[in-house]
Design a binder for these strands. Structure first.
Length: 428
RNA sequence: GGAAGGGUGGCAGAGUGGUCGAAUGCACCGGUCUUGAAAACCGGCAAGGCGCAAGCCUUCGAGGGUUCGAAUCCCUCCCCUUCCGCCA
């Protein structure tokens, strides 16, 4: 949630900055809602004050043993008007809240202004793409050739955009996640977390998936309300601090969490339909930080570097992109994407997204710490993939493939493969 | 799934219709004392909203209801604890 004070005091500047996202901000609509809200709120509070004073008088009169019939009758009049106004106030506040809940975060001043993907700015590259002396296959051909990756089976069991892995490939997939968890928890200072894969609506609202992006989620129906399958560990892990005041000295909080992620991918029909790039279910190791506001941009650089370390240790070529205003997520103030080289596509593809949300999520979650003056203040939250496990598997298959269709296992992962050096076709 | 008991400030925990935004303790902040610290003593100390301010309003798990007036009474739901059942 954007700071409503900012909208009240600097509406035009804020609207102009929001407009760089390519989503028009309705300043007139906001002004109208504000004027309405303010008028109703002022009058409602006057009446509430009158009611309270009146009720007190009745109490005092009763205590003195006086007759209260007249006073009570007067209160009836106040309450009739008040009842109506309170309903209108609730309505006005709900409208304003709905409006605010849909307003994206303000992009940080350092975010390049642009319309879309093409305007993202490359920050750096690491590792040179390997030259193949044979025609590089994509991960689908490689995995199916090895007999260890089965999309048809995924479709039979669940539907399109699901996959079944088996044997060494399934083990490698597990090993990748373990490797990442170990790296971040032992070398980067993150506390490992295990968290629910199903969350309630409050949690989804807190991190910003609701109310606007319900169509991207898998819903688990429940009596009265709904549960949701998490689209990323960001949701359960960041919500650890929802509705809490964290002791200032315990900041920063750094969590790493491996979970499956579930995304309905509504609206992306026909996009990345081949292979494991875009699945309804995939695993991801997520990094989450909760920090003091003055530390969040340093934390973003550090967190991004932590994610990059994984790619470096796996010797996978990648580049870092600063997303432009038109491409960053709604809740984010600044985002770096890590893109890994995929030889078959001859392109860099997203494998991690690292964002600073500043107080946007914290405000929705009421996640605070006690500042030097002893007053509660909103924390800043960040997260980034460290990394997407499925896409890392894809990158390893494609970058480490051999002419005979086998795949060399990167050295860093061999401890997780009982020392195995290559994945080869297994007897069925 | 059944039974019982609970959800109150950062934490613990009083409060069963009015002067309760809420005792008390802990924690925290300021002061006295002390070479310094501790202890002791004194004072302060919930959050959010509106307002230039004085101040006003809201909030005792959530929502609804009764009442002139609800933390307190009634209804529904959620959550927690203990016991029983079932179960990885």
């Amino acid at each position: 949630m954007i700071d409503v004070q900012l909208l009240r005091t600097q509406l035009d500047e804020v609207a102009a900055r929001l407009a760089t996202r390519g989503v028009p901000f309705d300043t007139d609509g906001f002004r109208a809602l504000e004027i309405e809200r303010k008028a109703i709120q002022t009058r409602t509070q006057e009446l509430q004050s009158a009611r309270n004073a009146h009720a007190k008088k009745v109490g005092q009169a009763k205590a003195r043993g006086e007759d209260t019939t007249v006073l009570v009758a007067e209160a009836g009049g106040i309450n009739r008007e008040l009842g109506e106004l309170e309903a209108r106030l609730a309505d006005a506040q709900r409208q304003l809240n709905d409006f605010l809940a849909g307003v994206p975060n303000l992009p940080h001043a350092s975010v390049p202004v642009g319309k879309g993907e093409a305007d993202n700015v490359e920050q750096r590259r690491c590792g040179a793409p390997r030259e193949f002396e044979f025609a590089a296959k994509d991960h689908v051909d490689l995995g199916e050739g090895l007999g260890q990756l089965d999309f048809a089976l995924g479709s039979k069991i669940a539907g399109s955009r699901f996959v079944v892995m088996r044997g060494a490939l399934a083990r490698l997939h597990r090993g990748i996640a373990q490797f990442m968890l170990d790296l971040h928890s032992t070398e980067h200072g993150y506390t490992e977390v295990y968290a629910p894969y199903i969350v309630n609506a409050d949690s989804m609202y807190g991190t910003g998936q609701l109310p606007k992006f319900e169509q991207d989620l898998f819903i688990v129906p429940r009596s009265e309300e709904k549960w949701y399958l998490i689209p990323t560990a960001e949701v359960p892990v960041t919500n650890i601090v929802r509705d809490t005041i964290v002791p200032g000295e315990s900041l920063p909080l750094k969590f790493v969490c491996h979970t499956p992620c579930f995304r309905s991918e509504a609206g992306s029909y026909g996009k990345d339909t081949r292979g494991m790039i875009r699945q309804h279910q995939f695993d991801k190791v997520e990094l989450v930080q909760v920090v003091r506001p003055d530390a969040s941009y340093d934390a973003l650089e550090a967190l991004t570097a932590h994610a990059e370390t994984v790619l470096q240790k796996l010797d996978l070529p990648y580049r870092v992109m600063a997303l432009c205003t038109g491409d960053i997520g709604a809740a984010s103030a600044k985002t770096y994407d890590l893109e890994v080289w995929l030889p078959a596509q001859k392109a860099y593809r997203e494998i991690s997204s690292c964002s600073n949300f500043e107080a946007y999520q914290a405000r929705r979650m009421q996640a605070r710490f006690r500042n030097a003056r002893g007053k509660p203040e909103l924390v800043h939250t960040l997260n980034g993939s460290g990394l997407a496990v499925g896409r890392t598997l894809v990158a390893i298959l494609e970058n480490y493939q051999n002419a005979d269709g086998s795949v060399t296992i990167p050295g860093a992962l061999r401890p997780y493969m009982r020392g195995q050096e290559r994945i080869e076709k297994e007897a069925a």
